[in-house]
């Protein structure tokens, strides 16, 4: 008889756990649930990658472009409204005391030439009189959000009295628009993650209920013999947590190649230099280094958290489902 033999510690522990008649391996089989959880983990990983990427882009775009105004002064060398200074100098003088300006810079000839090179070639002298281009950098804390932003229209009005025809272009508008776009993308990605988590809850609850129905007889029996709700719920919950963990792990591993590919495509926008392809991809250290260099840290952290998160969702959902079901018993 197997019971009389002295089994190993693990085997004995295993036997004691399984021998209460719940037969969870049959009640909650180890095929479908991990597979579905793995698929959802891939979806969650992609959505999380989207959220991370959108957050990075949003930060860059809002911060980078928001603080720059470009001012064009046509006929820069003509005398200004109040001589003797030229129009360009008059505008520069007027800008000097703009509140919140951190830097006023007139592009010199070389910079202008570089700017126009795509259209005019590498010329240093131009037949046309080029307008003066002045960049007005605003200090970061007086960005569009704080309301201390100099209104481009009123600035243009003020400059027009000094040098009529001066144009003011506010890059902040584009920056803010891109920032809002990135923010909405971020929100959508988080919503997708929440929906995936919601589906996981529904799926695990349904699987648990099917398992309860399949093992109704032994559950009712051990309940009648004094097994507590906590004991029965705990047995089921540990099983689904394990299955969900395995599924989550498989899913995040499966998502890795996709994410590496994605982040290489997105690298130029996020301004992270794409790392060179590894010499031998079979080398684990190289592969890990590649991952660390390619994927943003927040994404790596969320990836690592996927399997534990799936296990937690599985455990909590099953606990609630089983306890609610047991309340139908006396």
């Amino acid at each position: 008889m197997a019971e009389r033999a002295a089994p190993g510690l693990l085997a004995r522990w295993h036997r004691a756990r399984r021998a209460d008649g719940l037969a969870l391996r049959r009640a909650l089989p180890d095929r479908l649930l991990p597979l579905l959880v793995a698929a959802m983990a891939v979806l969650a990983a992609l959505a999380l990658a989207g959220a991370t990427g959108a957050a990075i882009l949003s930060a860059r775009w809002s911060a980078g472009a928001a603080s720059l105004l470009t001012i064009q002064v046509p006929d820069p060398d003509a005398p200004a409204a109040s001589p003797p200074s030229t129009r360009a100098d008059a505008v520069l003088a007027a800008l000097a005391d703009t509140p919140g300006a951190s830097r006023v810079h007139r592009l010199d000839k070389a910079e202008l030439a570089a700017l126009l090179a795509p259209w005019l070639g590498q010329a240093t002298e131009f037949a046309l009189t080029l307008p003066a281009i002045i960049e007005l950098h605003m200090a970061a804390e007086t960005g569009a959000e704080t309301g201390a932003d100099p209104d481009a229209a009123s600035l243009a009005r003020r400059l027009a009295t000094v040098a009529p025809g001066t144009l003011v272009e506010r890059n902040a508008e584009w920056g803010a628009r891109l920032g809002r776009l990135a923010d909405s993308l971020h929100g959508c990605a988080l919503l997708a993650v929440a929906i995936v988590a919601g589906i996981a809850v529904v799926l695990i609850a349904a699987t648990t209920r099917a398992g309860l129905a399949a093992r109704r007889m032994p559950i009712e029996l051990i309940h009648a013999m004094g097994a507590s709700d906590g004991y029965i719920a705990g047995r089921f919950a540990r099983r689904t947590a394990l299955l969900a963990f395995v599924g989550g792990l498989a899913g995040s591993v499966a998502a890795l190649p996709l994410l590496v590919l994605l982040s290489r495509v997105a690298a130029p926008f996020a301004q992270a230099a794409p790392s060179p392809a590894p010499a031998s991809p079979a080398d684990w250290a190289t592969l890990l280094a590649l991952l660390r260099d390619t994927l943003p840290t927040p994404l790596i952290v969320t990836l690592l958290a996927l399997a534990p998160a799936a296990a937690t969702i599985g455990w909590l959902t099953t606990q609630a489902t089983v306890r609610a079901w047991l309340r139908t018993l006396p």
């Binding site: 021998a19 008649g21 037969a23 004991y231």
Partner: peptide
């Protein structure tokens, strides 16, 4: 009785629900 458990495990149920050590159960 639980039809898919051996007689031994059927009889052991009350002791295992009390979490008694396995050698004692045996």
């Amino acid at each position: 009785l639980l039809p898919d458990l051996p007689v031994f495990d059927n009889v052991a149920l009350p002791l295992r629900l009390q979490r008694r050590p396995e050698d004692e159960v045996r």
